[in-house]
Write a protein that binds this DNA or RNA. Structure first.
Length: 647
RNA sequence: GCCGGCGUAGCUCAGGGGUAGAGCAACUGAUUCGUAAUCAGUAGGUCGCGGGUUCAAAUCCCAUCGCCGGCUCCA
């Protein structure tokens, strides 16, 4: 007797008795191969356990182990398993908070008097394996919310009680695995036997519900995969990321240093890093000149009144260093460049005829960051923005945004970044400016993005209070996303500084102001570049493009000659004329990631040539210095926009 | 700022109450060498800084600075 009819993904319908579980139904609707990869099911679009009894006609969509959703499910279930292990090992006084799946794995937050040690992770992991080995099922039950509150209150689980009190539902679901019961919406895996490839990765503190005023909990992060090989691959990737860590490479390659005596978050650029920065800056300035920008320079401090007028003191005060008294006048170290650019705007009357005005500056700003937030070059207290401000009429906004996007992508591509995540942030709850302005500007941003052919996501309400913005995150060779570019429309500063231009009609109008940074900060961008290329920079960016290695002292004079000729031709060259074996010199040049090694022995000296060894170990045919200069010129240009290599 | 971990030679790290160690780098000398480390010697440290406990502290305790993993924030 068939009471309900079920189908998979709109396929052929089949009849089943009411109360048939999804699992039983899928047994008949799927091939056994598909069934084995299925860990949950979407019933009319809603994710559910396989054990769910079905009461109505439905369309079923299997959730499989090879899907994103299936992986998240595994990790979520693993979080429960971990909580189980923690309670087993640390006793019922452990208070459990929440344990979701996140991007690379999962975490669970706990509250207990003693603190976890790194060794505990291994113990917990071992206990998890024991529980999983028993193939304990995940069992779902439902009960009235009030009953659940009583239950968790009785168990001494205040975080669960708090969550339950805020839930807007009469009945709630609980899941039990082994003898651990947790409040959870589900769904979960059928049983813990799936949870084999698990690794607990790190310990961390985390505020309850991310709120600084709430208790600090202990968070355990971990990850899980269906396949042990996948886990191994993931751990290898972590290892690869560690090898590329810009702080490690920055030290090894002598690119930058941070000294305790100087201060946290303040970067000292060593000669090689400084040279690389000069190359970036020169390129940046050239491109901006080509795109009709004009370059500005502005000071590092200004009277505090400027920051009162701009509103930074009120809205950005907690990110600013405290002010400095100079002859009884208070001055403020700048956290942004915009007020200075406005100062230049105000230096004379402006006409619509000169619009759009495009002013750029590599402006060094200082922002107060909490010590705990600092991180190598990625998060610092003093940094240089590749800033620009564009003043234009409302009707020019869309085209200007388009131009910015165009320049932006061109520059990012030249540095080898071809993948982006683009976000458009719209009006937040608290904002300045009229609704019409917001709407028009947001529309202009959208149109420009679409015209540029960029796929983007909308972040509703995530705009800054003064206007909508576009953020671009670049993806590095390991697939990690980094916030760099930001393009922001500003309705606020033109108003506050009362800037205007004379329009066609002879009247004064308020210009639209756009802030934008493409690389974001030179420091962070440099950090991302280091990790992207693993320190092996493309030829056009390599601080040292070539190093001359002689075989014996007999070639010292020739080494000098080649060195001088290459320098004169503008090649960034070094010489290693130490009395060491060639093997030794090659090894050092290799570790220094120098792209070209120029080997010079008696043969080369006699022929007036150099033998060229590349960073990948291959050799080129011997060539003359003039030939090499031409070769490097071509290769250097070709290396702009070249992709980085992973692994 | 908060939770946890860690600060020993320029770098990577050992030593965990009883005379500060190794490798690499540096320096000196020998060697003159063809595609990822030649050999020998020399020098180098108030064990992050400040208190305390102890006959005795790199080691134990407290405080502080810095770094690391997160939370929060963002270029």
């Amino acid at each position: 007797m068939a009471d309900i009819s079920l189908a998979v993904r709109g396929g052929e319908q089949k009849g089943f008795p009411v109360g048939t579980t999804a699992e039983a139904a899928l047994k008949e609707l799927l091939t056994s191969k598909e069934r084995k990869r299925t860990v949950a099911v979407r019933v009319n679009g809603t994710a559910m356990d396989l054990a769910t009894p079905l009461a109505t006609d439905a369309d079923l969509e299997p959730v499989t182990v090879d899907s994103e959703e299936g992986l998240a499910l595994l990790r979520h279930s693993t979080a429960h398993l971990m909580a189980h292990a923690v309670v087993d090992l640390f006793g019922a006084e452990v208070r459990v908070a929440i344990g979701p799946a996140v991007a690379d794995g999962f975490y669970y937050d706990f509250d207990l008097a003693e603190s976890f040690s790194p060794d505990d992770l291994e113990r917990i992991e071992a206990r998890m394996q024991e529980i999983a080995a028993g193939n304990a099922p995940f069992v779902r039950t439902t009960m009235a919310r009030d009953e659940a509150i009583r239950l968790f209150d009785q168990k001494g689980q205040p975080y669960k009680v708090e969550l339950l009190r805020e839930l807007d539902a009469d009945t709630v679901s609980l899941y039990q695995v082994g003898d651990f019961v947790d409040l959870c919406r589900g769904p979960h895996l059928p049983h813990a036997g799936w949870l084999k490839a698990v690794k607990l990765t790190r310990l961390a503190g985390a505020y309850w519900r991310g709120d600084e005023k709430r208790p600090m909990l202990q968070r355990i992060y971990g990850t899980a995969f269906y396949d042990a090989k996948e886990l191994k691959k993931y751990l290898q990737q972590l290892e690869e990321a560690r090898k590329r860590d810009h702080r490690k490479l920055g030290k090894e390659l002598e690119l930058f240093t941070i000294q305790e005596q100087v201060g946290p978050g303040l970067i000292l650029w060593q000669p090689k890093g400084a040279l690389l920065r000069k190359l970036i800056e020169d390129y940046w300035k050239d491109e901006h000149y080509r795109h009709d920008y004009e370059l500005l320079y502005t000071p590092h401090i200004a009277k505090i009144d400027l920051w009162k007028t701009s509103g930074h003191l009120d809205f950005y005060g907690e990110n600013m260093f405290s002010s400095i008294d100079i002859e009884e006048v208070r001055y403020q170290l700048k956290p942004m460049n915009c007020p200075f650019h406005i100062g230049i705007y105000k230096s004379r009357k402006r006409s619509y005829r000169e619009f759009p005005v495009r002013w750029c500056e590599l402006g060094t700003v200082y922002r107060f960051e909490k010590t705990g937030a600092l991180h190598g070059l990625m998060r610092v207290r003093g940094f240089t923005q590749d800033d620009a401000h564009i003043f234009c009429r409302p009707d020019q906004l869309e085209e200007e945004i388009f131009n910015i996007l165009d320049l932006n992508l061109h520059i990012l591509q030249t540095f080898g970044f071809a993948e982006y995540d683009v976000y458009l942030s719209t009006r937040p709850e608290k904002y300045v400016g009229s609704d019409e302005h917001w709407e028009a500007a947001t529309e202009a941003l959208k149109l420009a993005l679409e015209k540029k052919g960029l796929a983007y996501e909308i972040d509703p309400g995530e705009g800054v209070f003064y206007g909508p913005k576009i953020d671009i995150k670049i993806r590095d060779v390991l697939g990690r996303a980094w916030q760099c570019s930001t393009i922001q429309v500003d309705f606020n500063l033109p108003e506050r500084f009362e800037i205007s231009y004379t329009g066609e009609d002879g009247r004064e109008h308020q210009p639209i102001m756009i802030h934008r940074a493409l690389m974001g900060s030179l420091e962070r961008f440099f950090g991302v570049l280091i990790e992207h290329y693993a320190g092996a920079f493309p030829l056009w960016l390599a601080p040292v493009q070539a190093r001359i290695l002689n075989i014996t002292d007999a070639q010292l004079g020739y080494v000098d000659q080649v060195y001088r000729e290459l320098r004169a031709a503008g090649i960034r060259v070094e010489k290693d004329d130490r009395n060491e074996k060639l093997n030794y010199k090659i090894r050092e040049a290799q570790l220094a990631k120098v792209p070209y090694m120029l080997i010079v022995g008696d043969n080369e000296m006699a022929a007036g040539q150099v033998t060229v060894r590349l960073r990948d170990g291959k050799n080129l045919e011997p060539m003359t210095v003039a030939g090499l200069v031409e070769w490097l010129r071509v290769e250097s240009a070709a290396s702009m926009g070249a992709a980085a290599v992973a692994g």
